[in-house]
Design a protein around this nucleic acid. Sequence first.
DNA 1: CTATTCTATCGAACAACGTTCGATCAACGA
DNA 2: TCGTTGATCGAACGTTGTTCGATAGAATAG
Lengths: 211, 211
Amino acid sequence: MTEAVALLDEAGEPALTFRALADRLGGGVGSIYWYVASKDELLDRAADHVMGDVLRAVDPIHDDDPIAEVRAIATTVFDTVERRPWLAAYFMTDTEVQPNTLQLYDRIGRPMLRLKLTARQRFHAVSAVTGFVIGTAADLSQRPPPEVVDGSATRDQYLDRIADDWRALDAEAFPFIHQVVEEFATHDDNEQFRAGLDLLLAGLRLQAGSS
Amino acid sequence: MTEAVALLDEAGEPALTFRALADRLGGGVGSIYWYVASKDELLDRAADHVMGDVLRAVDPIHDDDPIAEVRAIATTVFDTVERRPWLAAYFMTDTEVQPNTLQLYDRIGRPMLRLKLTARQRFHAVSAVTGFVIGTAADLSQRPPPEVVDGSATRDQYLDRIADDWRALDAEAFPFIHQVVEEFATHDDNEQFRAGLDLLLAGLRLQAGSS
DNA sequence: CTATTCTATCGAACAACGTTCGATCAACGA
DNA sequence: TCGTTGATCGAACGTTGTTCGATAGAATAG
């Protein structure tokens, strides 16, 4: 059932309509409502289904350095979410129908137990990591512009156009953008995520060291 | 025009429909389409309108310590976005119709110019901060559950119920959750955000110091 | 064996939404 | 006076999520 959902969102988020799903399953529209109560719950369950895969992919990860282990897990989560823009909005929205997500949350926090931190610090650290991973993924793989969807331009062309717009800005009114526009034009999403994550984890390491 | 929009989303996001907005403005439905091309653009512009307020609120902020200045700006942005769950999804989605957002982006990066970093490091740092702020705000002020919307339960009651569910989990299968559930039950969103932001900024300070 | 409940399916119908479109009207310059 | 332009309006269209009663087989009870 949710297998068919996972297949459908590979063809874009707004393509997942109750009627399209019913057709794909060879059933009626109303039947789906026997299994889920609403579309929100459908997407909650679909998101949790994906997190089940992440959970399995993350299972063998181990590192003697707790922070390195968190980093490896976070990177795996990011790679998965970044490929599925719809996922970010339904991550951890209803833990009652998302058991896999709950397990993943615990999995991220487990290495932190080996760090010398207070319970509160640990809670804040894990929340910060998940927030950063999901937030950055949502930010980077944001709703693609119409001209990319209809195929009249590639994603690279779109980004190049933005870079050109930025270059045309006044250097005195926008000193920072003026300086980093070339970085923006040549940036790589994954590298950008890892750089931010490393900043966060460096701060965490500092905190764990000076307890 | 967008003033009316800013008023309407105070009454919830899905309440902003073209018909409701037209009624509020005392005009026709079609008239709105003379000013905006689609609902996406309407929300893009509404988001940018709010960012204009943020920009003004942030203007007088100055601190000799660049990182402290970034912290103050980020906190202001967070406070604004957290109060408006719909905002996160439309932050920096189309800079062509969001001049204020573009200015704000530059404003966040400007103190970083005083840090000893490479252009690439600066770009990554600002992206990390904005991603963290927006992502965490979206995560914390996520779509409220139905029972809170219809007033049959308060937000605190809802969180208490989740905490109870978490307490009922097996301590061996969920060691981390078991340890932090009390922190979750008594947590404060703002404190949680600031703790994560401070981790991120501590990492940044480390990087700037060891250049 | 029969009657009754439960599980599961189905699609017509409803209300609400974003969007399109042609009609309309005032203002203005030629 | 006429045609052009800026601006407004609401009826209409297609799609969406959701509700509902009808239906039929399986299981269970008497």
